[in-house]
Amino acid sequence: MIEVNDIHKSFGETKVLKGISTSFEPGKTSLIIGQSGAGKTVFLKSLLGLHLPEEGSISYNGQINTEMSIEDKREFRKELGMVFQGSALFDSLNVEENVMFPLTMFTKQTRPEMLERVNTVLKRVDLENSNKKFPAELSGGMQKRVAIARAIIMNPKYLFCDEPNSGLDPSTSILIDNLIQEITDEYKIITVINTHDMNSVMEIGDKIVFLKNGLKAWEGSSKEIFKTDNQAVVDFVYSSNLFKKVREAYLNEK
């Protein structure tokens, strides 16, 4: 479990995070939403350990980030997987080498053992027979799936995704969302997604954290977000006519 306890983070005079507390549970997909500049990226980077909060703490299964030694941090990073907005695949490596990279760096497995694991993971993300292709030869959706495969190759306890649907068509976005949710459920990992995609919010949000001006303005599930009367959430999530109608239909059905 990840427990975030009243974290604050500033850059110079600008206070970006002004005291956020929340928690993320294993086997559940949590989404961080909010307008641009609300502090989502800084919050996600704080969870990843790339930013140290000035006040407050983050604990990962009881291990508090500010009390971790360099060795602990190195070990912690082996337990997390990350899917970047632009996939961040290594251009010079093919699909197989990209996915195998963490195994090559951090395990003593033999090449056949690593290949077996790579093929299992690639099969899991429906990317068989693409082992020798380079990132430039793949579509955006395929690149995201390779990135997910690379993120889960080490059996991480935590999976972080930064806007995994950006730049994808609606049907591919749904595939990626479903894949992330299935993997979260299957491996019982803690998944935290930073997103602007309201479809993801409706479809896969076991927990949604809404940030506004560096503060947690609301949190709840994808069901609860339909019913909320929090004006900030309503203004953000139901800004489009389509989602307004979806909400009205949901509430009328109830």
């Binding site: 970047f84 961040a88 251009d91």
Partner: peptide, 13 residues
């Protein structure tokens, strides 16, 4: 600029 260096750092490299 394509976050590949961030990916390395997050992996612990």
């Amino acid at each position: 600029v394509t976050e590949q260096i961030d990916a390395l750092e997050i992996m612990g490299v």
